[in-house]
Design a binder for these strands. Structure first.
Lengths: 121, 121
DNA sequence: GTATTATATGAACAATTGTTCATATGTTCT
DNA sequence: AGAACATATGAACAATTGTTCATATAATAC
């Protein structure tokens, strides 16, 4: 029977609602997409990066200015900016020695503020 | 001078655009709020929890069914559900021995899908 | 009461992450 | 060319995180 197959030692308990599980399974996100999405949110999951993003809502900024604003050293900020850039949350442009960072698109601000309204509830 | 104060060894480089920094500082998020927001997004930043949330878009589910769906043991799922509940992303109701979990509000799905449209770009 | 089942939880461990330090790269100015 | 400055990056370390295992709690059935 199907029920016996489902009980195949997946967890210490048995599948209780096989119909629900089968129906939900049809709508499940791909493994790859779940990984990408988790990686995306991980980038938001750090106080320093939250502050950097929040700062960039106001203005593009160079690395030194962000470091001064957040009272952190240049290296730490640079490492974080790299992560933000790899996740395509920010973009950069170079002007001489100075590299300016800014938000990559408006999705970012929307996600940010949706999160903010949740935590403010 | 103000400029000398600003150069006060905050980072290895100097503040380049003091006016920008001062203006941005006015719009900065509180430390506490930044922490809360980062904590909120951290909860989204895990593949297992992403899948659990995605599953709950389709239907409320009990712990066993989620464990079976994701092919993980009951304890791992229970730990993750606790985190989701602490962050108020899911709520639970007990019916006899079985505890059913469901999404706490629609914010969650909005954040989720905004993130998804970013990673799909 | 005991047995069984569903869920929760604490401890331990491996894996990941953020910051610091030292140093490298890239650009401008002299 | 070399000096000065802004930024990037690799290695190391501490701190955090997710899973597993063992066990505890809670509800039902006998």
């Amino acid at each position: 029977m199907d029920n016996e197959a489902a009980n195949f030692e997946i967890c210490s308990c048995n599948v209780i609602h096989e119909d629900v599980v089968n129906r939900v399974r049809k709508n499940m996100i791909d493994d790859d997409e779940a990984t990408d999405l988790a990686e995306f949110f991980k980038v938001f999951g750090d106080e320093t990066r939250i502050k950097i993003l929040n700062a960039l809502f106001s203005s593009e900024m160079c690395v030194c200015d962000i470091a001064a604003l957040l009272d952190m050293n240049q290296s730490a900020i640079s490492h974080q900016l790299r992560k933000l850039k790899q996740a395509r949350l920010v973009k950069s442009r170079r002007d001489g020695k100075v590299v300016y960072y800014s938000l990559n698109d408006e999705h970012i601000e929307q996600v940010f503020h949706q999160g903010l309204s949740h935590v403010r509830e």
